[in-house]
Design a protein around this nucleic acid. Structure first.
Lengths: 337, 337
DNA sequence: ATGAAAGCGCTAACAG
DNA sequence: CTGTTAGCGCTTTCAT
């Protein structure tokens, strides 16, 4: 009290509250964690005392005692990739509602960095959500053996996952383009080691070959705007009339490059993206794209993980979320090639 | 060893490693936390044993013992607002490099939600970075009294902060527009309770009045694309020849709405934004905007907080980051009004 | 309904 | 350089 320096006084502990109220520390603990086990009157006195002292439980001590830290790790390639913010936000909302905080980690699309991030977060969280992993199946399995793990946008046998199915969306896109009269299509591919790229590429192949359409595969590219610009030139050289891009960022790049080269979208060339990021609808022309329910993915992944944490030995469970084609103005009928 | 069920064996502790190597637990602890205090040979045996056992330190126990959790809380309004991803990523990179993990919390632009998030994260982190806070000065001061706090984009006396100065940028924008021959300008304002909006509005007022320009103030608006569309109509009705928006999202909305109404940008109306989000450069026409160094802000805020954590009683320190006008193609000379 | 007591796993003086 | 020791603050049986 007579200290001259304004150093912050040490945080009050549970014992301080107990002393003040005249109960045992364990009762104070109960009042916070299992209120129904404490008489209402006692509980209220404890709450009042805690408030007056400015007491709140020390998370680390609770964690050590219970073996739970009430934190989830969320590992994503890159929050600057507009695919992820909605997912992250949804995940955080669910986690918070259940009393969990979210540790965010980046991988920068790099398998090694990803592994490091995963390991760092695994040490501090009760469980992990890993999105669009580029780490090998074996490594992921090894991690899942010691950590509660939910994958997003990646399938590994034995590990729970939320998958954003994109084959159906690709098929819809192809059907849509065929209906518009297109007979020669290009796919501007994403990274080779991307699971969703492989899904999309395969769906592109089967859908086009089933229909006897000419299919040209461009790439692989890094999934970015400027790669889309490259792809546009390649597509033009190949003489296709429609181009499906691995994602919206690339599709926007395609669209932009075509406009710059004086090729009108959609009159001369149709463009389709994937993801339906926010800017797709605002672009000119508004982008036809395969919408992926990223919010739902964030939500489901978190719920899955939370359930894993509660149930202990839950069996692998897979949530498959459907993609749907959103038709806007970057696709149009073939004007008699 | 003879267990039939495959329940995960309990995590090995420091004692297991110590026993295996034949040293004291404290030596094992040292080998991890202060490697230089342990003889190289011993350390290597410890490391080998740890590896073979699959041991790694329990973060909660370490936290309880040291009083440090090696986690930073990062509170932002909304990761879906394209202003924040770059900041978050930069902050996380710095934190991770220093051995800290980042807890991410959202406020949804709501003061009450923000307060709740701040309190939740303050309990679990060693310190907090709070961005674009809408909480009152008093509350923030109270929080700063019990928590290491760094503010971004907000000034409160006594609290360390990184401020993205925007007055100079606004002035440059006005000077730029005046030089192009514009004499009647509109400012499409952001939220009333936003600190940066107040800064920008004030700079808009002084800069225009110093130069004797006609200045019309629109808004306040929520800082979003569709609000920009509204603002475009209002600006058109007011007969200005240039419009500065509170942020790029709004500026893009303005630009889009003008295009839709057949008003050419920049020939008939010039548009300036704030922030320089990634899409600004890719937009058509590429947006002239006041770039804010958000990456640097994330970096500086994290460094500031880390220093606060190290030094204990550090005095308030303020980092002011400069905004700069990036001239692209949404501004052009007045073509003889 | 409450109290007593035994840790949770690690760290950091302090000795030696 | 390494071992001994005493906690960090809370939770949770087990009693009462």
């Amino acid at each position: 009290v007579s200290a001259t320096s304004s150093r912050s006084s040490p945080r009050p502990t549970i014992d301080a509250v107990a002393d003040l109220v005249g109960v045992a520390p364990s009762t104070v603990s109960r009042a916070f964690r299992h209120p129904q086990l404490v008489q209402a009157a006692t509980r209220q006195r404890i709450e009042a005392a805690a408030r007056s002292l400015g007491y709140w439980p020390n998370a680390a001590a609770a964690a050590l005692s219970t073996g739970r830290v009430a934190q989830l790790g969320l590992v994503i390639p890159d929050i600057e990739n507009p695919f992820f913010p909605a997912l992250v936000k949804a995940a955080e909302a669910i986690a918070q509602a259940q009393g969990y905080a979210v540790l965010l980690g980046h991988t920068d699309e790099d398998a090694l960095a990803e592994l490091a991030t995963i390991q760092a977060l695994a040490r501090q969280a009760d469980g992990l959500i890993v999105c669009s992993s580029r780490v090998g199946d074996d490594e992921l399995s090894a991690i899942a053996a010691t950590t509660k793990l939910v994958l997003v946008n990646r399938r590994v046998p034995g590990i729970s996952a939320v998958v954003l199915e994109s084959a159906a969306g690709m098929r819809q896109a192809i059907v849509h383009l065929e209906a518009l009269g297109h007979r020669a299509l290009a796919y501007a591919g994403g990274p080779d080691d991307s699971w969703s790229n492989r899904e999309r590429l395969e769906a592109f192949r089967t859908s086009t070959s089933e229909r006897g359409l000419r299919a040209v595969e461009l790439g692989p590219y890094e999934p970015r705007f400027d790669a889309g610009m490259q792809a546009a030139d390649a597509a033009l050289a190949d003489g296709v009339t429609a181009i499906v891009a691995y994602n919206d960022l690339m599709a926007l790049g395609v669209s932009s490059r075509l406009a710059a080269r004086g090729v009108r979208v959609p009159e001369e060339l149709s463009v389709v993206g994937f993801d339906d990021i926010w800017i797709a609808a605002l672009w000119s022309p508004p982008l036809t794209t395969v919408a992926l329910p990223t919010r739902a993915a964030g939500r489901s992944a978190t719920q899955l993980l939370l359930r894993l944490l509660d149930e202990g030995e839950a069996p692998e469970s897979i949530v498959e979320l459907k993609s749907t084609l959103v038709i806007r103005s970057s696709t149009a009928p073939m004007t008699c090639g």
